[in-house]
Amino acid sequence: MIRVRAAERADMAAVDALLARSYPRLLKPDYPPSVLVTALPLISKAQPALFGCGTYFVAEEGGAILGAGGWTRDRRRRGLGHIRHVVTDHRALRRGVARAILDHALAQARAADIIEMECWSTRTAVPFYAAMGFQIEGPMQVPLQAGISFPAIRMRQRLS
């Protein structure tokens, strides 16, 4: 049974390994090698600030972390949240891991008076987010580092 819980600092190494193992396999069909060679080293690392924040979660089964993801509150716009760094182990796809994480995250966001959630989706994850009720707003570039950006799709969902 998949269990979703708040991520802790002690989970960072496992999530880092999950991202490094799964993002290359999951993103390969939707991005050219020229994008992946520059972006993967930057996006396939756990973001330390998310661990222990209370709104970033891991999904585990039998003690193994199968996925991670969550949300953060927008600092400038009241009622707006952002989906953050969602990943499912490529060996656990189609088992409800990401759905369990996102359902949990959206429920927590609603309870925290978030009325709108924004997502910067990979091309690969657009069908998943659409199935979860997000609407496509259009393509965007996510700045990763000076001179390096990552093509994404901006998506949005009203929670109220």
Rank of each mutant, 00 (worst) to 15 (best):
L42K: 08
V58E: 06
E118F: 07
I43C: 09
P139H: 00
L18P: 05
A98Q: 03
R75I: 11
D11N: 05
R21F: 13
L50Y: 12
A146H: 13
A112C: 08
G63A: 04
A17Y: 00
F57Y: 12
R9S: 15
E61G: 10
T122N: 03
Q47T: 09
T72K: 10
E60Q: 10
R99L: 11
K28T: 15
A131Q: 08
Q145V: 07
L18A: 12
R99T: 09
K45E: 12
P33S: 12
M132Y: 02
Q108K: 14
E118P: 03
T55S: 14
G79N: 02
R77V: 15
C53N: 13
E137P: 11
L26R: 02
F57M: 03
D16S: 08
R76G: 13
L93G: 09
I83M: 13
A130R: 07
F51Q: 12
L36F: 06
L66Y: 07
V4H: 01
V58W: 03
H85Y: 14
Q135P: 12
D11S: 09
G70T: 02
A64F: 04
V97M: 06
Y129P: 13
D30P: 04
L42C: 07
E8V: 08
L80E: 15
L80H: 13
K28C: 15
M12G: 09
H82E: 00
E61W: 08
V86G: 12
T38H: 11
R73L: 15
I65Q: 07
T72Y: 09
L36Y: 04
V4C: 13
W120T: 14
D89Y: 09
L27C: 05
L26S: 11
E137K: 11
P29H: 02
L102Y: 01
Y31P: 01
T55P: 06
V142H: 13
